[in-house]
């Protein structure tokens, strides 16, 4: 066995040691096994869920026929899209503001901007519940205006993340480029649009993907802001899980896992592209 190995394990090659490999394998199993079992059993032809009775795709059909579930999915995607759009604008502006300017109260703004990231979700959820009750936010608006309060809540916890990502990208900006543009006669706005914005683009895209995922995933904060007519996908799945464990929930979950994998692949692809462009 020893002879078959190409090189002996060097002292620091911890990742080639058997015990560490089995540990990582065990952790991966722990993380993935429940998800895999869930996906496999979404194709199970049995209402009772746990015994394998043959392959079927009927639960997926049932999911697509389930109108309230599809409406919830539509709501979630609309909210995620709107919240991302607003968060990208606000987050980019906030990043430029904190990167560029010295002004009174700067440290305070910077600190407050980081708060929505660290405040426990439950506190933020409660705050929005109380806020919308206090201002008397109407809950009989027509769609999509009825999603306004959830969208506002999502923007509040998404845009600081966008600001964080874009600001990290701005750190690598060479200010002389902007000065050169100004020297050559560009106005402040022109140099922002034609020099700074293209540089920030990979950060903005990464921030947008992050914000979309965060919004789509959020349960706790939405749970406190959604009304009877504005159910989102996670809130709907929650009530299904609470009510009963059915193969339909497995099918829905499998679809959402697939969506996550796709979004992740897109994000990685984007990162690759921006890396090759930079080098």
């Amino acid at each position: 066995m020893r002879l078959m190995r190409r090189t002996p394990i060097a002292p620091l090659e911890y990742s080639r040691r058997l015990w560490l490999r089995s540990w990582v394998g065990g952790v991966a199993l722990f993380l993935y096994l429940p998800l895999l079992v869930l996906i496999i059993f979404s194709f199970n032809d049995s209402k009772r869920n746990v015994v394998w009775r043959g392959f079927t795709t009927k639960w997926y059909g049932k999911v697509l026929e389930n109108e309230s579930l599809m409406a919830a999915l539509g709501n979630s995607l609309t909210i995620a899209f709107l919240a991302t759009l607003i968060s990208v604008v606000l987050g980019t502006l906030a990043a430029v503001l904190l990167w560029r300017f010295r002004f009174p109260g700067r440290a305070g703004i910077e600190g407050t901007m980081a708060l929505p990231i660290v405040v426990p979700e439950i506190c933020l959820g409660v705050a929005f519940l109380v806020f919308f009750a206090q201002v008397g936010w109407p809950n009989d608006l027509i769609w999509p205006l009825s999603l306004g309060n959830i969208t506002i809540a999502h923007v509040t916890f998404c845009f600081p993340f966008v600001a964080l990502v874009v600001r990290a990208r701005l750190a690598s900006f060479n200010r002389e480029q902007e000065e050169a543009a100004r020297d050559l006669g560009a106005s402040e706005w022109q140099s922002f649009r034609d020099v700074l914005l293209p540089h920030m683009k990979p950060g903005i895209i990464a921030g947008a993907l992050l914000s979309f995922t965060l919004s789509l995933d959020d349960f706790v904060i939405t749970f406190f802001t959604s009304g009877p007519n504005t159910i989102t996908f996670p809130v709907k799945v929650y009530s299904m899980v609470r009510f009963s464990v059915t193969p339909e929930v497995n099918a829905v979950s499998a679809l959402l896992i697939l969506l996550t994998v796709i979004l992740t692949a897109v994000a990685l692809k984007m990162q690759d592209i921006s890396k090759t462009n930079a080098s």
Binding site: L35, V37, V237, V241, S253
Partner: peptide, 15 residues
């Protein structure tokens, strides 16, 4: 980590 929290919890419940 990127997979929906609710779905991960449900997967564990299911198993």
């Amino acid at each position: 980590f990127w997979t929906n929290l609710l779905i991960r919890t449900y997967a564990l419940l299911f198993v």
